[in-house]
Amino acid sequence: MKILIADDDPQIVRALRITLTARGYDVITAADGRAALNAAIEHHPDVVVLDLGMPGLSGIEVIEGLRGWSTVPILVVSGRSESWDKVEALDAGADDYVTKPFAADELLARIRALGRRTPAATDEPTIAFGDVVVDLSARLVTKAGVAVRLTPTEWRLLEVLLRNHDRLVSRETLLTEVWGPQYTTDTGYLRLYLAQLRKKLEPEPSKPRYLLTEAGMGYRFTSDGA
C-alpha cells in the first residue's frame, strides 16, 4: 500500500517513513501543501497522512484540493486538539483525525482501517431527478451536465435520503447517520445543510420538489418532483 506523508516537521516525517517502510508500506513524502497535492496527483496514494499547519497551502486547503477529484482516505495528524479544528478538517473531507503526540500502534491501526476501505461497488445505482444525476458509485453529482461540488457532510446527507427513496427519514435518523448519536437534538444542522443542498440541486430552492420536508417528522427524497 502506498502512503503519502505530508508534514513540514522533518523529524516526524523521518520517524513515520522508517516505521511505515519497516512494515512494508511504500512511502512518499511532501514538506508543504502544494508539494502534497502534486505528489497525490503524480503517485495516487492509497492513504494520505496530513498535517494541518503546513506552509504554502494549509492542510484544509490540501484536503479541499484532493476532494475536488479524489476519494483517497485522508488521515489528519495534527498538534491542534481543539474540537473545532477536528470538525473543520472532517467537514472539509478528512476521514480520520489523530492528535500529536500519538502512539505509533494507534496510527498504524488507523492507517490499516482506512486502507481496508474499498470503492463503492460498481453496481451502485445512478439516480436522476430533474436535471440532476447522482452517481453513488463514483460519488459524483451533476446538474444539467455540470459537476456540482458537495461537501462531505452534504454528500452523506444526500446519500442517506437517496438510499431511502420515497421513504420518510426521521430527523433523529439523519442526525445519527450523518453527525453521530450525540447530535440527535441538533435539528439546526439539518435545516442548514438541507437548505444548502436545495440551493445546489433544486430548480426552486424555496419550493423544493425533490428534497421534501415532512413537518414535525423528518425529510423525504422523491424523484417524481411533487
Rank of each mutant, 00 (worst) to 15 (best):
K86T: 09
T118P: 00
D51V: 07
R23I: 06
I5H: 04
L37T: 04
R117T: 12
Y25T: 07
D46C: 06
R117E: 11
L157Q: 00
E159D: 10
V133L: 09
G56N: 02
L211N: 03
V141A: 00
I3L: 15
R220V: 12
G68L: 10
A215K: 15
E214S: 11
G24K: 10
P181D: 13
R156Y: 00
V49H: 07
W84H: 14
S70N: 05
R112E: 15
A104G: 04
M1L: 12
E177P: 06
N38P: 00
L192K: 15
V62Q: 07
V141R: 03
V27T: 08
L168I: 10
Q182M: 14
A39L: 05
K200G: 02
P152C: 02
W179Q: 01
A128R: 13
A226M: 13
V76C: 05
A89Q: 04
P181H: 08
K207A: 13
D7P: 02
N164H: 14
D32N: 11
I12C: 00
V77K: 08
E154P: 01
A35L: 12
S170I: 08
P45Q: 04
L212V: 11
K199E: 15
L158K: 02
V27N: 05
H44C: 09
A121Q: 12
T99E: 10
F129S: 02
H44M: 10
A104W: 10
L158D: 01
F102P: 07
V13P: 05
R156C: 06
S81T: 09
W179Y: 15
V47Q: 01
V148M: 02
R191K: 15
E106S: 08
V134Y: 00
T185L: 14
K200V: 01
K100E: 01
S83F: 13
D85A: 11
D9A: 12
T184Y: 09
L136H: 02
A6P: 10
A121F: 10
R163W: 05
A92K: 06
G218D: 07
A215W: 14
V133P: 00
T71K: 11
G216N: 03
G53F: 07
E214V: 15
I3W: 05
R163A: 12
I3R: 04
L75G: 03
I3M: 08
T222P: 08
